[in-house]
Design a protein around this nucleic acid. Structure first.
Length: 578
DNA sequence: GCCGTTTTCGGCCCGACTGTTTTCAGTCG
């Protein structure tokens, strides 16, 4: 799949065109096309072969030709030309906080600066401050920006973002008596898989009190901006936090605005314009009377006045949700209360930290009705995978637990390794005694796309395999997904009715949103799992549910929403019941 | 460069903060 590669090229063209002072709308066209390709799950090369590229939103004749050119030659003339004109180090300069296209262009033209290293040197020598439009302060800020660059570019995992955000909400609420409301917005509210910075929206009669308390927190390393309604700080761990104070009557408009995504908001404003309305963070207004707001108190009324169904934050990525909301075709998304059990988690028999009983007890307290305990299989020695003898001991232990509890059932599961030739780590006569088998790849990631794909497809052909675990194997921030032919695997999964897992570990979230959406579209059953290695990690179900919501999934699409009898029926019949 | 519920040309999202200026440009989200 060349999707990501081409998307990156288009983004870079767009940045270089900015420096080149091209028509801003032409620049945006490249950004839009790049976004489309970034989110595309179909293979762009096969679309190019079918001459279907211009069906993609934001891709017209011009960009379609350039994509085709890249598919057949591996190069794009326009891109090569721009890189030659400006050198590619210049793109890295634009990543520095305080450096945009204009300043980059001036520095390149006047001082021949074309890399971050040269930029740093020039700023240290004081060469920037005398240029027109620059000054001592800007020079200083650019140096600070360079030293903070690494921290800025790091994105947080969801659990860390949530932890920091909850702490800030809690302490600011205690400190500021004037604080009427404080709500995290931004990508955290959309439950995006990683979060770049934290946004807080507040309502207060005394904005200065809230802003002061926010910028004077002890973990604040640097105040990036501080005004009368907005402040921006950098925490000591390199996390940027923004806070806005808005009047009560604008809360809904502001929440909508700061929840984003940017792409969703742009599309929403364009829609508003077509209806003769203007939308900003203070409300929705008629173009001919900008003083009188039509809506603003709640998000609901804003969407309603625009003729839309309410769009849940998780869907606000401009991936078709606005069109669906116009025709009242948004799905009713799954909620955490719909979940009745978990299929994949570990005890201290393998690499978990709690006993089977402790794990099951916590599951019961969460209000679940059933619980599949799935430790690792024998060959995964690093994780103390279970040999058959231990597996049978565990089965006995489960029987005892089930006699003890009413209205709650523990089942024997196992996360069984898919060996390098596609066979399973337990023989069939063992597998058939296990209630639910999750098949996962833990070794041999470098086999290559063809082999890995065949290996997984072969595993799905085993009649005792029920679920495929963390299909792409990615670890956010540390390991790329291994190469697989997604379409082939999902087709096979639909045929064999093997479920695909959405793993709720914050560093995995695998399948991720767009892949899970494709899987559902092809008729593949979906399961949500925590992959918990301790009792507290059973709460990772929240992240699995959030990912499912971002994939547009309803409770009807997900096996965890079925009763014990129903999941056993599914398992035994092998027929789709969703 | 894309796009069409005022269609094949003429549009294309909006505001806050900072630092440079002395009314505004650049950056950011």
């Amino acid at each position: 799949m060349k999707n990501r590669e081409i998307s990156t090229v288009l983004y870079e063209i767009s940045s270089l065109l900015e420096i080149d002072q091209e028509n801003p709308f032409r620049i945006r066209a490249y950004t839009r096309a790049a976004q489309t390709l970034e989110n595309l799950t179909e293979d762009v090369e096969s679309l190019a072969q079918k001459d279907a590229l211009t069906q993609l939103p934001g891709v017209g004749k011009g960009i379609a030709e350039k994509i085709k050119e890249f598919c057949s030659t591996g190069k794009m003339a326009e891109y090569e030309h721009l890189k030659q004109k400006y050198s590619s180090g210049i793109l890295e300069m634009m990543q520095i906080s305080g450096m945009g296209p204009k300043r980059t262009r001036i520095l390149f033209q006047k001082l021949k600066i074309d890399s971050v290293e040269k930029l740093k040197e020039a700023a240290q020598k004081g060469w920037l401050k005398d240029l027109e439009g620059f000054g001592a302060k800007i020079e200083e800020n650019i140096l600070k920006g360079i030293s903070l660059k690494d921290q800025f570019s790091k994105r947080m995992l969801l659990d860390e973002a949530l932890r920091i955000s909850q702490e800030i909400v809690k302490t600011l609420s205690q400190q500021c008596r004037s604080l009427e409301k404080i709500v995290p917005a931004g990508s955290l509210r959309r439950w995006k898989e990683t979060v770049g910075d934290l946004d807080f929206l507040t309502v207060s009669e005394k904005p200065e009190e809230v802003i002061h308390a926010f910028t004077h927190r002890k973990e604040v390393k640097r105040v990036l901006a501080e005004g009368s309604t907005k402040a921006s700080v950098l925490l000591d761990r390199g996390v940027q936090c923004d806070l806005r104070v808005v009047p009560k009557e604008s809360f809904g408009a502001a929440l909508q605005y700061f929840t984003g995504s940017k792409e969703h908001n742009v599309a929403l404003r364009e829609l508003a314009l077509k209806k003769g309305l203007t939308i900003n963070e203070y409300g929705l207004y008629h173009n001919d009377d900008k003083k009188k707001s039509v809506a603003g108190k709640t998000e609901e009324e804003i969407y309603k006045k625009l003729g839309l169904e309410f769009v849940p934050p998780e869907l606000r990525e401009n991936r078709g949700e606005i069109e669906a909301a116009q025709t009242k075709k948004l799905p009713k998304l799954i909620e955490e209360k719909d979940i009745r059990g978990d299929f994949h988690n570990h005890t201290k028999l393998s690499d978990g930290t709690h006993s089977l009983e402790e794990m099951a007890q916590k599951a019961k307290e969460k209000g679940w009705e059933w619980f599949v305990s799935a430790d690792h299989s024998q060959s995964l020695k690093v994780a103390r995978g279970l040999d058959p003898e231990t597996l049978w001991k565990k089965k006995k232990e489960i029987e005892i637990l089930n006699q003890k509890w009413n209205n709650f059932n523990v089942l024997l599961g196992s996360e069984v390794d898919i060996l390098s030739d596609g066979t399973m780590d337990y023989a069939d006569d063992i597998l058939k005694e296990i209630d639910f088998v999750v098949a996962s790849v833990h070794t041999g990631f470098s086999q290559g796309e063809e082999k890995l794909t065949e290996r997984i497809v072969k595993a799905m052909g085993n009649p005792y395999v029920d679920i495929v675990g963390h299909l792409t194997g990615r670890l956010l921030g540390s390991r790329e997904p291994y190469p697989i032919q997604l379409q082939r695997i999902l087709d096979a999964a639909a045929k064999t009715q093997t479920a695909m897992e959405i793993n709720g570990q914050p560093q995995r979230l695998d399948l991720y949103d767009s892949y899970a959406q494709s899987a559902k579209g092809l008729g593949v059953p979906i399961v949500l799992t925590t992959d918990a290695h301790s009792t507290s990690q059973l709460d990772y179900m929240t992240y699995a549910v959030a990912t499912a919501r971002r994939a547009w999934l309803r409770k009807e699409d997900i096996l965890n929403c079925l009763s014990l009898k129903e999941i056993l029926d599914w398992k035994n019949s092998g027929v789709s019941i969703l």
